[in-house]
């Protein structure tokens, strides 16, 4: 979004340029996986699978 600000990275191990992080009150508190994976596709698939299996919901399988 073009926002720039100074933050502290004391709590990120081996920080690298290009890392994505969660920021809270001026401190990076954790590294996030690659931007793509912010969608966390695996996690959603697992959840949809769980929903389907529990209640045989067809709706969870429309994609």
């Amino acid at each position: 979004m073009g926002m720039r600000r100074k933050i502290r990275i004391d709590f990120i191990e081996n920080p690298r340029v290009g890392d994505y992080v969660i920021v809270h009150a001026g401190f990076a508190i954790e590294r996030l996986p690659e931007k793509q994976a912010l969608e966390d596709l695996e996690s959603w698939e697992e959840l949809e699978e769980a929903i389907y299996q529990e209640y045989g919901m067809q709706a969870a399988r429309t994609e």
Partner: peptide
Amino acid sequence: RSGMMQGE
């Protein structure tokens, strides 16, 4: 006012 952040 916050002085720390810039953007478009």
